[in-house]
Amino acid sequence: MKILFNIKRPARLESLNYLIDMIGSCAKEQGLSEKKINEIRIAAEEALMNIINYAYKQKEGYVEVVCKTEPEGTFVIEIIDTGIAFDPFSVPEPDITQDIDTRQIGGMGIFLIRKLTDDFHYRRDGDKNIQELVIKLTPHN
């Protein structure tokens, strides 16, 4: 495992662009395509926005982002917060087959993370929520 960066910022909207830009440039250094980099940025935004909006309620808190590569050829983004326990897998998948009248307007964020990454994991470790977004470093990506 090689850690590419590890940064901690207040869990606020003002931190979002900086964190996503850091993740984006790190993905670029791995030789990923422009399309894949944008998909990674979207997936990371979804995870970060959930933390910014919900993890700490009215209190101040932090979000930590670790980018690393694993020897099996994956690029991993670890997103950590110490807010309320939140298992993204507890959120039901949206029904994307409904028409415009019945279609729900929300609930797409976690679904996008799952679909835009090759693997997505969550674990609660002590007071931490740890989300892991995994992207395979293949020529296809």
Binding site: E34, K35, K36, N38, E39, R41, I42, I96, T97, I100, D101, R103, I105, M108, F111, L112, K115, L116
Partner: peptide, 28 residues
């Protein structure tokens, strides 16, 4: 889109590419 539907309006999209096209596909 829901608002336009109630107002008898329409919304169409053109020129999608890259990650945006992918997200539209994934989202139905």
């Amino acid at each position: 889109a829901k608002r336009l539907k109630t107002e008898q309006g329409n919304i169409y999209f053109s020129g999608l590419k890259g990650a945006v096209e992918e997200v539209f596909k994934i989202s139905g």
